[in-house]
């Protein structure tokens, strides 16, 4: 049990290092898209460690408690995440719903802390984040419903292994409409344009993050990196057949994240009601028709 927990902590740490490095590389990629040089690939690490070392201010116990709950919830969630089918801390217990709902503890902690700062811009950011969540989560869950119904298991490694069988395609190909919905929802999840309304730096001063500095901000940065790790690797496991070994996992992960970043770098920002209307128009229609076609008619490529 202790080894499993230590392994889980290792997964969370691996996720943090991986995502922070890839995010650094992606700052260069986006820089090149926008005809800039971009910062060094390890710039994100420097930012985080600088923040952690600084002395900051606090707005009361809930402000700190929320940050601890946020980072703790996200580390806890990441501990369940499989890397390959064999490299998983708690085999058989990596249920899909744990990732969707345990991640919410972290989100709740951050929202709580942000509202506890007493800055209205933070509350507006939280409102937008939750509204965006209401938008992207439902189509995504419907696609995952289809996947779980087809594979008969809600274990993330189980779903990945199902796709690795010779007779089955990746779900990105097997369920093409669902795959597109998955990509769009993932962009909402990790807050890429056009769905980054809740951060909106020029408009609401980074939203939930507005009051933070020093170690609290550093911890929220770590939390954000691990959150992105959870969401992108969930996509890799659910839609891209998981990974047989770590190298393949890193390659798939890098490709997914970089593609999203490049798509994101050419878009503007939606208004919050446009986000909701968007997701409740095409993605949900596509998700529902995909589910009907796959479950009731059995048409899976």
């Amino acid at each position: 049990m202790i080894t499993n927990i230590l392994f889980g902590v290792g997964v969370a740490f691996f996720g943090f290092v991986l995502q922070t490095s890839i995010a650094g590389v992606n700052r260069k990629v986006v820089g090149r898209v926008q005809k800039r040089y971009g910062p060094k690939w390890y710039q994100e690490f420097l930012d985080i460690f600088k923040l952690l070392s600084k002395r900051s201010v606090t707005h009361g116990w809930i402000f700190d408690f929320g940050v601890i709950m946020a980072l703790g919830g996200i580390i806890g969630t990441a501990m369940f995440m499989p890397i390959t089918s064999d490299l998983v801390a708690f085999a058989d217990f990596d249920n899909f719903f744990i990732f969707v709902y345990l991640i919410a503890v972290g989100m709740l902690g951050m929202a709580m802390s942000a509202s506890g700062s007493g800055n209205p811009l933070a509350s507006i950011g939280v409102m937008r984040a939750l509204t965006t969540m209401l938008a992207y989560e439902v189509p995504f869950m419907i696609v995952v419903l289809t996947i779980i119904k087809l594979t008969g298991t809600s274990s993330v490694t189980g779903i990945a292994e199902f796709q690795q069988l010779a007779s089955n395609n990746w779900f990105m190909i097997a369920l093409p409409l669902g795959g597109i919905v998955g990509v769009m929802s993932l962009m909402g999840m990790i807050g890429k344009k056009p769905f980054e309304t809740y951060i909106a730096p020029a408009e609401i001063a980074s939203g939930p993050m507005v009051e933070y500095g020093g170690k609290q901000l550093g911890m929220l940065f770590i939390m954000h990196e691990i959150t992105v790790f959870i969401e992108v690797s969930l996509f890799v496991h659910l839609f891209l057949g998981g990974a047989e070994n770590v190298v393949l996992f890193i390659v798939k992960y890098f490709l997914v994240y970089t593609t999203l970043n490049i798509i994101s770098s050419v878009y503007g920002r939606f208004k919050i009601d446009q986000v909701v209307l968007f997701f409740y128009k095409w993605p949900i229609l596509m998700a529902i028709s995909q589910a009907f076609v796959a479950i009731y008619l059995g048409w899976v490529i």
Binding site: V9, I68, G72, G73, G76, T77, F90, L102
Partner: peptide, 10 residues
Amino acid sequence: VFGVGVLIAF
């Protein structure tokens, strides 16, 4: 596991 996460964060 959530408890462990919170402990690390703490």
